[in-house]
């Protein structure tokens, strides 16, 4: 009786603790939404209002005019990064798990090391290499650079997934006369659908959220993703916080959409990539 009571109250205590933690986790996101609806006067009044105070849509109308081009740019970059990651990673992961090649150990080790390399190291050299190869200020250049976040991770996650596919599936296809490419494209890729989606979601978020390569590789060109747009807003001495927060709200949309639509893929990708990786 007492034990049951205590365990029940313990559970509610846990709910309370979790709720408190979630308030801390979610508050910054909440503050963006509140801030994005505040007027400039409110934001410069020196007081933070916990609930929207004299809500207005003015910031959104400013931002929709100023940032919709940047949102489009970000979408192109994010989709391009996802496409590049899939084109490079899916076949490579398949080869690294289902073919016995002499290069496998070397390549998997170098992928693990690629994950460690800091982006600033790559950005400094890529800026000059891209100058040389005429990839500065271009979508292909930025997408190639953004792929450095996604591709090593994608190959390692997909490789771990392909190990779970029974070899008999491929052998059956070969017995039926399928070529290596047909086996891969018609049989293996459809079976790996969930892992492929996980990888695409992550690559999309990487391309969408990239800032460092946009900052370094797109120097003063017409191409400007939303992350760079937000940073430019900040640059002034008197920051237009309403506009910054409305832009930040736009920049958070894909994360929100992915969280709702691809929840299980995200969680499984995070753990798979890190523990198996």
């Amino acid at each position: 009786m007492t034990r049951l009571d205590s365990s029940r109250s313990l559970r509610w205590l846990c709910t309370l603790a979790a709720a408190l933690a979630l308030v801390v986790v979610l508050f910054p996101v909440y503050a963006v939404i509140v801030g994005s609806f505040e007027s400039t006067q409110t934001l410069f009044s020196g007081t933070f209002y916990w609930l929207p105070h004299a809500a207005t849509l003015a910031n959104y109308s400013t931002v929709i005019q100023a940032q919709s081009g940047h949102v489009l740019t970000s979408l192109i970059v994010a989709l391009g990064t996802a496409a590049l990651a899939l084109i490079v990673a899916v076949p490579a992961a398949y080869a690294l798990s289902k073919y016995r090649l002499r290069v496998t150990v070397v390549l998997v080790s170098s992928l693990l090391i690629c994950q460690i390399v800091p982006s600033i190291v790559l950005a400094t050299s890529l800026f000059i290499v891209f100058h040389w190869t005429h990839l500065v200020n271009s979508y292909p250049g930025l997408i190639i650079a953004d792929g450095t976040y996604a591709i090593p991770f994608a190959i390692l996650v997909l490789r771990a997934f392909f190990f779970s596919l029974p070899n008999e599936v491929m052998q059956a296809a070969r017995v039926d006369g399928a070529s290596e490419w047909q086996t891969f494209y018609r049989i293996v890729v459809p079976l790996a659908r969930s892992a492929v989606i996980t990888v695409a979601v992550f690559a999309f978020l990487n391309g969408w959220g990239d800032f460092i390569f946009a900052l370094t590789i797109l120097s003063g060109s017409g191409i400007e993703p939303i992350t760079l747009g937000i940073y430019t807003y900040l640059g002034n001495y008197s920051t237009d916080w309403g506009a910054v927060m409305a832009s930040a709200a736009f920049a958070m949309v894909p994360a929100g959409v992915m969280l709702v639509l691809a929840q299980r893929y995200i969680a499984s990708g995070l753990t798979a990539g890190s523990v198996v990786g």
Partner: peptide, 19 residues
């Protein structure tokens, strides 16, 4: 919900904390 901070663009997180 606890994974939300991990999904946001990092520059956005920086800007939010500045706010």
């Amino acid at each position: 919900l606890v994974i939300i901070p991990w999904l946001l663009p990092l520059i956005v997180t920086g800007v939010i904390f500045k706010f």
